[in-house]
Design a protein around this nucleic acid. Structure first.
Lengths: 231, 231, 231, 231
DNA sequence: GATGAATGAGGATTCATTCAT
DNA sequence: AATGAATGAATCCTCATTCAT
């Protein structure tokens, strides 16, 4: 968020600016920066004229960056709020809790992973500042956590592990449409999300190499006997 | 053909059509369908005019789909050429070999993962046909392989595992730019690629359960035969 | 508004929208829908850019249809304002008055007959709505008038008579250029128009049978009450 | 027809060139010169490439003019073949016969009137030569016939009469689509054409002022009792 | 005589943005 | 804060035409 952002403490003028951000987030997630027109976003918000939008954001790119910053900040906050645990056991719990928080959030904001994955694939020249400011600290924090865990990975492999975990976590939601078409089942159904949640936790536990994870597997066993999907 | 066209005597000179496909693949991977102009692609190929391009492809979208199909087909061929092994041991070797082939190919065609990841995130309505034709069989084959391996996953979890492996494998290359900015190291350096190769193989092995984590595999075995749920 | 826009104080200054309609009417009449470019019309109006035109009309066809509707409505109003006379004598006067009004109007708007004749020859799929809304009532009214007059035509022949009168009336002005080339005289000179006016009135009178050719009118009278054929 | 036309006596190479003319006539009649693309015509003829068309006609306009000339010449021949009668009685019969011939021809070539009406409305600068060569003699001949008939018209009114007759005759067929939409009946059905034929003859007889026409009216009386159309 | 390829010019339309109100 | 109008640049695509084969 830049310059004219919410004046401290006063939630007053929320309406229009935030509506624009919401609409833009949805659109940009769906079709990317170049695939969305300012007119479209203005229309979504109920503005009769694209010109009105320029009262709230300097231009299209500024709007895009505001959307992206808002989205990434939310994720960063989610992860950053994890207690900086030092013991492996506490770390395990913390990781699981963080995964839960993130997955919960991604389910509630299903367009966010698309938006962020897109931004990662797109030309990131425009995003150097935001990346450095927001993502690098997050990355360092993640590396710290991974390093703590009883790892089977060398220090130089940790970045690869971090990237892998990120892709597992975000890729599922970002590619929901594709998954649906390929598997012919809704990847965002609550059952599917529950399964994905279990899978991610289990996979993370295995890859991170913490042996405390089986705990949460057991209670779910009964569920595993539920009727099979038609994958 | 003019300009850089076929030099007399070398019959295998790349056809205009293929040159267009190459240029388009690069561009579409970089900036997506809406971010690329036909003029740009035509220019890359040395065509003096966009009109010429329409001699080879009905329109921009047809070109895009041709590019995508070519790219996906290459991957599919890579994976499909894996011997349909039945023993777990043979499977392990086959999986490793396939991973090597795919990684080799992605390194050689670094734009392909971006292109494909993008296509997965984008509106896929236009791609129904291609997806069904190309990806579904590949997916079924993948599921088969995963099911064969002595895994700790239930049948209903296999799709999630498959998706996860895909995201680990392609995400790294697709997000190379982002990774570079965050980690401040080149993810496509030969050293980094070698590390990623080791990481992927190791991670796959762990997740598929061929080599490690046999601990909690046993209790789940019976479940794997259960019919799939509705996702 | 820029350039030649509204001069302060004169509120009835022609709106941009109307200027566009005027220019488009002229152009479309001259060269037809496909023969005119949007750029051309925008240029005529003094707009520096085609884009401005799209602020007032959704697209080229919408503009064309607006032009056509405006033109036809003017004619319809002209004819519709004729008093619904019931006696043959009053009808005669009314017909003459209507002819005068229409001819006056066509002389003042020489491009209108071309526009309308063109529309009749062109593919009318796009015009179904307008035709049904505007022309069918006019046609019914015309049939009523023709039926009233002491005519030598059967009910089933009235549509042919109506069409014939329409073609005589509009064809002259629509084909003015051709007539000039063939007759080597200006068909729109005031003398020529006066002659045409006399000719039309006289021809209409003869064909409608109000004034002349009573000879073979009688034998046909009874027939006129016969129900109409299927065309 | 210009330059490369059919070499005297040899009907040999008819095929392609004439096919092109036929297709072009249809298309140009439907949508006018600017509304038709060369590709379209070539496609109609079965040519896989527009380039082939340029073997037969120098360019699009030359093709158009050839089409127009062929069409107009046919009409001119039809009218010119009327015996140059000198007596009014013979003239009446000749006029009727000519009308029959022309109407027969227009029914068989329903696209011709549209083509010709269009040409008359369009910018005729390109057609000066053809008009002068083909139409002026026809016009003079027509004037002669009209002058012969026991006319109620002055010499200076004859051009108006001539134009009116032309518009009645061609307008009906040229505007068939429009008439159909307005009257909700097919103007080219054989019944409708028969009625139009009677109407035209009768109208012409009245306007020309020949008193011999009633003859052909009587035998048709029975038909007039046929069931009514839904005009 | 027919075709594949190429091309310059132009087609309609949409783009992001600005300005006065 | 919002809107109507305008605009330059760019969009995809089609046009008629030419040339070598």
């Amino acid at each position: 968020m830049k310059g004219r952002g919410s004046v401290a403490g006063t939630p007053a003028q929320k309406s229009t600016r935030d509506s624009i951000l919401d609409a833009a987030e949805r659109r940009f997630a769906e079709r990317g920066f170049t695939g969305v027109s300012v007119r479209e976003i203005a229309g979504d918000v109920g503005l009769k004229n694209q010109a009105s939008l320029y009262h709230h954001f300097r231009n299209k790119r500024a709007l895009y960056e505001a959307v992206l910053a808002r989205g990434v900040e939310a994720i960063v906050d989610l992860v950053a709020s994890a207690p900086p645990s030092t013991s492996a056991a506490a770390s395990t719990a913390a990781v699981d809790a963080t995964l839960d928080r993130v997955i919960d959030y991604l389910v509630e904001h299903p367009q966010l992973p698309r938006l962020i994955q897109r931004a990662g694939i797109d030309d990131i020249r425009h995003l150097r500042g935001a990346v450095t400011r927001l993502l690098r600290p997050l990355y360092q924090q993640g590396l710290g956590i991974l390093a703590l865990s009883g790892a089977q990975w060398s220090a130089e492999e940790l970045p690869h592990l971090g990237a892998g975990l990120y892709h597992i976590l975000f890729g599922y939601f970002a590619n929901a449409q594709l998954l649906e078409l390929v598997t012919q089942a809704d990847p965002l159904s609550s059952a599917a999300v529950a399964r994905q949640r279990r899978f991610v936790k289990s996979a993370v536990a295995q890859l991170i190499g913490l042996r405390s994870s089986p705990a949460h597997v057991m209670p779910l066993r009964g569920v595993r006997r539920s009727p099979p999907p038609n994958f």
